[in-house]
């Protein structure tokens, strides 16, 4: 994380419905949400939070296209230029026979590329230690967090209380 410490105030909710309602209220009150942490993906949270759609699939398409080209052009070059070879009297450039490998490499490139991109943009990876706010967030608590640097603490706490947070805590990240 960045070297400047963040003072976080966060509320824990027991249910995702509570959380969504709290996020809505925070948005109406124009409070800047630091982040929301949940034990599982919550449907309907992204539009409320105002998250833009992920562009990961676009990256996936580009990686896939790269795989298609690598396989097809690679085999074309190998069998027409680098080492032309006759197999069973077939043409050097036997396109139908290239399709299976072209398909497989498309999938392989897209999958590896997307997965690696996913971990890099999320700042996740083997050995990464991300401080987290509460151990129960990966269990059964739904967390709404505010950065005290951008939101006044009183407002944040009162919103968390109003919306039914079962616990309100502070932590420095």
């Amino acid at each position: 994380m960045a070297n400047n410490h963040k003072e976080i105030v966060f509320g824990l909710y027991n249910d995702e419905e509570d959380l969504i309602r709290a996020v809505k209220e925070a948005k109406t009150a124009h409070l800047d949400i630091y982040d929301v942490f949940t034990p599982f993906p919550i449907h309907g949270l992204d539009p409320v939070l105002g998250l833009e759609e992920s562009r990961l699939h676009i990256a996936g398409f580009i990686y896939g296209a790269l795989g298609t080209l690598t396989a097809f052009l690679g085999m074309t070059w190998i069998f027409t230029k680098d080492w032309p070879n006759v197999f069973g009297g077939k043409p050097y450039w036997s396109v139908p026979a290239f399709i299976p490998i072209t398909f497989e490499l498309t999938v392989l490139f897209a999958a590896i590329g997307m997965t690696v991109t996913f971990y890099i943009v999320n700042g996740l990876g083997p050995g990464v230690v991300n401080q987290h706010l509460d151990d129960r967030i990966t269990d059964d608590k739904f967390c709404l967090a505010f950065d005290k640097g951008s939101v006044s603490e009183d407002k944040a706490v009162s919103l968390l209380k109003q919306t039914g947070a079962v616990e309100i805590n502070h932590k420095t990240l």
Binding site: H57, N122, T138, C143
Partner: peptide, 19 residues
């Protein structure tokens, strides 16, 4: 991998799973 459960991570996670 240092997973936190951030909303944006979940969104990307679902996008990745779907693709």
């Amino acid at each position: 991998f240092g997973w936190t459960g951030s909303a944006k991570h979940w969104q990307r996670w679902e996008s990745l799973s779907l693709v």
